[in-house]
């Protein structure tokens, strides 16, 4: 479902990375491993359409993703890709539930309060739905970002260092959650990390 051809990216005339050929099939779980500065975040941003690659092509199912621009790209990402940042980027003036409901509104999809509550419940944070993000712990905020990424049942889930700021127990739990929800959605999961703790949980590893 995701084909990468001759993809390379330069930052200030220095090559960040280069990938000649990489094919990812539907429903697969991948771990992108690499040291800091190896370009794994950059790759993830390019896969999410947040950044244009210097060269190369990405096909998302039948769509040549690298050809999309501006609003079309923003909308395509919103409707097909769930992205979880290392930090939980939430709108601070909106409640947890409203942060989730913002997703279908901005992606021009139908509002679905029931789904938002189901996701919060699955991630054990339903009791926080009326709270503002600033009143939540870091772990809770991370769960809200995961719930938000899943609001529109994405075909591709991308996560950038989702466990970096979590302790061992929470890290294992979050990875388990990612695997569980991607399986339920039959979605493809890509996690970029330098966190060796979670290495064993993935059979597909892409080393950068």
């Amino acid at each position: 479902m995701l084909k990468i051809r001759n993809l390379s990216h330069f930052y200030q005339e220095k090559q960040v990375f280069s990938i000649s050929n990489w094919e990812i099939h539907k429903g697969e779980n991948w771990l992108i491993l690499g040291k800091s500065g190896s370009g794994k975040s950059t790759l993830l941003h390019i896969l999410a359409g947040l950044l244009s690659p210097t060269q190369g092509q990405i096909f998302f199912q039948d769509t040549e993703f690298t050809q999309l621009k501006g609003e079309k790209l923003d909308l395509f990402r919103a409707q097909n890709i769930g992205f979880v940042f290392q930090k939980s980027h939430l709108v601070q003036t909106l409640s947890v539930l409203d942060n989730l409901l913002l997703v279908p509104f901005l992606a021009k999809e139908k509002s679905n309060k029931e789904k938002a509550e189901n996701l919060l419940s699955k991630l054990n944070v339903l009791h926080k739905k009326k709270d503002l993000p600033k009143n939540l712990s870091q772990g809770e905020q991370q769960r809200i970002s995961i719930a938000r990424a899943l609001m529109l049942s994405p075909k591709l889930i991308l996560a950038d260092e989702p466990t970096a700021s979590l302790d061992d127990e929470n890290a294992q739990e979050v990875i388990a959650l990612f695997k569980q929800v991607s399986q339920e959605l039959n979605a493809t999961l890509l996690i970029a990390t330098h966190d060796q703790r979670i290495k064993n949980q993935f059979s597909n590893i892409f080393q950068m």
Binding site: E71, F83, K108
Partner: peptide, 16 residues
């Protein structure tokens, strides 16, 4: 800027 960037990330159109 942060919120607006976040909303663009979430697919907000320029009109929105």
């Amino acid at each position: 800027r942060y919120d607006l960037a976040l909303m663009r990330f979430l697919g907000a159109s320029k009109a929105q």
